[in-house]
Design a protein around this nucleic acid. Structure first.
Length: 255
DNA sequence: AACACTCTCAACCGCCCACTT
DNA sequence: AAAGTGGGCGGTTGAGAGTGT
């Protein structure tokens, strides 16, 4: 599919020699060999898998084929409206963290969600006048119902100017775990959070609480003085700021 | 029917991080 | 501590299908 000569000449070691390596679409025979091998030997050791399985493919290609197509848990077919809604909500929360988004949508792969976003959802949002990257209006038109939405993101530095730990921990919370209430507490008291955070379970609870309530719908319709909406907006803004700023904050700290 | 154009999505890429040696 | 390796990620590409003229 892709021209082998197009790969750039970096000094990094490629994942395979690329000599005698087959590329392009997988044949049913190759799929069968790969699926049978993984059923027998299990996933992993991707670099040596092709040799052991008798495939003229690079290990990365095998992994991708298995993850995105051959895995029994992969759901094929159209993205349902509720899945689409979930993708939108999660993208607003997490940005282009496709693997994290895919992890919340059973049977869908990061590649599939990424493709669906790029070919459908981003265009859909643009047609609705929404910036698909920020989820904010492309042409901001201040009106009373959008006050909450249009407020500047609250940076983690504003919340706690001296705390890189907070920023890092908040970032970890995005990737690993907290729930809504605990996230709020985190903003108030990072030390308590760090001490009490049970990451994996809490992240699930946190995301579930954000996904399952309809704050994103209400947010567009409710007046500013809706306390819960304001509170969740503070948290949402913190999440946005954390996702965007975490890397630069860390870089600044290390510099 | 033939051609041009657009859209979709499987597959590839380089980069990065965690782990091992 | 440094180098090497394995695996995962997001961005991008392009072949093939679909649609319009």
């Amino acid at each position: 599919m892709r021209n082998p000569s197009s790969s750039s000449g970096t000094s990094k070691t490629p994942c395979c020699s690329k000599v005698g390596i087959k590329r392009g679409p997988w044949t049913p025979e190759e799929d069968e060999i790969l699926a049978n091998y993984i059923k027998r030997e299990g996933e992993g050791r991707w670099r040596t898998l092709p040799k052991h399985a008798g495939l003229l493919r690079c290990g990365k290609s095998c992994r991708l084929r298995w993850m995105n197509y051959l895995r029994p848990s992969v759901k094929r077919g159209r993205i349902a409206p509720d899945e689409e809604d979930l993708i939108l909500r999660l993208h607003r929360l997490l940005g282009n963290r496709w693997s994290l988004i895919a992890g919340r949508i059973p049977g869908r792969t990061d590649n599939e969600i990424k493709n669906y976003w790029n070919t459908h959802l981003s265009k859909k949002l643009i047609s609705q006048g929404i910036d698909p990257r920020t989820h904010k209006p492309l042409n901001p038109n201040p009106n009373p119902t959008q006050i909450v939405h249009d407020r500047a993101p609250i940076s983690t530095q504003n919340l706690n100017p001296n705390s890189l730990v907070l920023q890092q921990t908040a970032g970890n919370a995005i990737q690993s775990g907290t729930n809504l209430e605990q996230y709020h507490n985190l903003v108030v008291n990072e030390e308590d959070y760090i001490e009490n955070c049970n990451e994996d379970n809490m992240f699930s609870s946190f995301l579930d609480s954000l996904i399952n309530d309809n704050m994103f719908v209400n947010q567009q319709q409710q007046p500013f003085n809706h306390g819960t909406i304001w509170e969740t907006e503070v948290i949402r803004s913190t999440i946005d700021a954390t996702c965007d700023d975490q890397q630069s904050a860390l870089n600044n700290h290390l510099a």
